[in-house]
Design a protein around this nucleic acid. Sequence first.
RNA 1: CGGGGCAUAGCGCAGUUUGGUAGCGCAUCUGGUUUGGGACCAGAGGGUCGUAGGUUCGAAUCCUGCUGCCCCGACCA
Length: 572
Amino acid sequence: MRASNFLISTLKETPSDAEVISHQLMLRAGMIRKSASGLYSWLPLGLKAVRKVEKIVREEMERASAQEVLMPAVQPAELWEESGRWTEYGPELLRLQDRHGRDFCLGPTHEEVITDIVKKELRSYKQLPVNFYQIQTKFRDEIRPRFGVMRSREFIMKDAYSFHINEESLKDTYQGMFDAYVRIFDRLGLDYRPVIADNGSIGGSGSHEFHVLASSGEDDIAFSDSSDYAANVESAEALAPVEPRAAATQELSIIDTPNAKTIAALVEQFNLPIEKTVKTLIVEASEESDSTLIALMVRGDHDLNEIKAENLPQVKSPLTFATDEQLKDNIGASAGSLGPINLKMPILIDRSVAQMSDFSAGANIDDKHYIGINWERDLPLAEIADLRNVQEGDPSPCGNGSLIIKRGIEVGHVFQLGLKYSQAMNASVLDENGKAKNMHMGCYGIGITRVVAAAIEQNFDDNGIIWPSSLAPFQVALVPLNYDKSEQVKETTDKLYQELLSAGVEVFLDDRNERPGVKFADMELIGIPHRLVISDRGIKAETFEYKGRTDEQKQDIATQGASEFLIEKIKG
RNA sequence: CGGGGCAUAGCGCAGUUUGGUAGCGCAUCUGGUUUGGGACCAGAGGGUCGUAGGUUCGAAUCCUGCUGCCCCGACCA
């Protein structure tokens, strides 16, 4: 490709609304342009990177025996009503009507459509297992799009759905897809980790996320410092402290705490160790509970894990905190003075709370707290559950070492869905006994456009993007100096360009009539891995100047055999 | 959804406090000089100052409504 036929639309200055480095560089390099909040156009350069990701993903999907399909982006409401998600999904689902007033949505995901197809097309267990994938535009009306294409509303995703006669077959394909994902992210050259993820209300053991490690990531990942255990903090188990509960040493007493509405204030004003305080959070109970509200208690220095909480059968999902009116009506005290003593509702306590002694908590009377509370002496021990987020330094749930927390960008997710959709939509095949059986399902996603951003987030320097070879829009930049004045530079460059093209090298010829500095800066910003400078001076000495994008030093190479040299470099 | 901020040329910004008819840098176009790290000189084009209304002799500037964008929060007991 010649620069004269290709849109190079680089910016010297960083647009002020771009916050993370990948967004800034994608704008500056002319990869993307914004149309509206969370909606981006991909310019030629950016699209090339997208296509690179897609190609690798396609190859590995085919290798894993998945078949490519293409489903509509606009989906009928009936399918979503059938699965129950028309009402469940919430405002992220962009709904629209056609001219007849019929309801549709822009697909945020395609379980409904694929399940509908499969239930209509497949009859027999002999046709299973099957695995279909597509690479397609999704739309999610995100509450807050940000970070450019990292969290946009419209994005390109590879999604795959597998169907099975039993759980064993599902697990088999799940492992196959897991392995395919490992291959994909290896080939993309990213620093990533598969991590154990929340499987929501579906249960089972089957869900992993693939995270690219980057400080700008929106997820916290917990790693063991001495094994390969890694889990999303949302789903990392918080173990009970090893030390048994200490014996009570203090009397239970009630104190006035008029200005202590928060744990921090309580700790500060009364000089209490924060590990001796508990937070009491009142949430709505599930329908199977006798009570309308339920109390959740975690240690003062711990954070409630909402996912763990709402996965508990006693707790309403989605997690809904009690309003101030509900607190007043049911307890008679407001948030800031709540605690377990004399609380007329079910209580769930975190494992670490169960181990506490001589602790303090609100008295359920405004502006009063109890101190010196002890389980079994002052009140019966409440029901124990894992309710909190793990913290750095906690023992690893795998039993080896302690946890380190790092940030990650979720670029892939593999998930054993089980029977959720096949039951709701009655997708079945006949088994070997001629009986209808709902199919087990798995789903597997990769955020294609997010991968592009994540790759940049992990590979850049002061001069711009440093593409991993697998994603680079071009492998080689030819930078001739004085291309339109010097006949010998032009001839030499054109000849080399043709040679590389015939060898199948993705080569970019910067034939613009720009000064050298401009070309160098642009090629570096765009992140082309290999650069060759062709100049009169070099030709006279029978050399070209080569520099790899991350090389410290330039080097002169012989004009003879320059293409071979470059091809070797590209191979790495 | 709650809180905060912003909206002036393609991009980055000044001008708004104190009302007087719009400016700077980059980019673009023309001519010339330059050509190994984001050149220089001369000239040119480009703005209903987000939008609708109000106040005023006069509004980018003051007031009101609306829209868009950005940030923070949505963990509070």
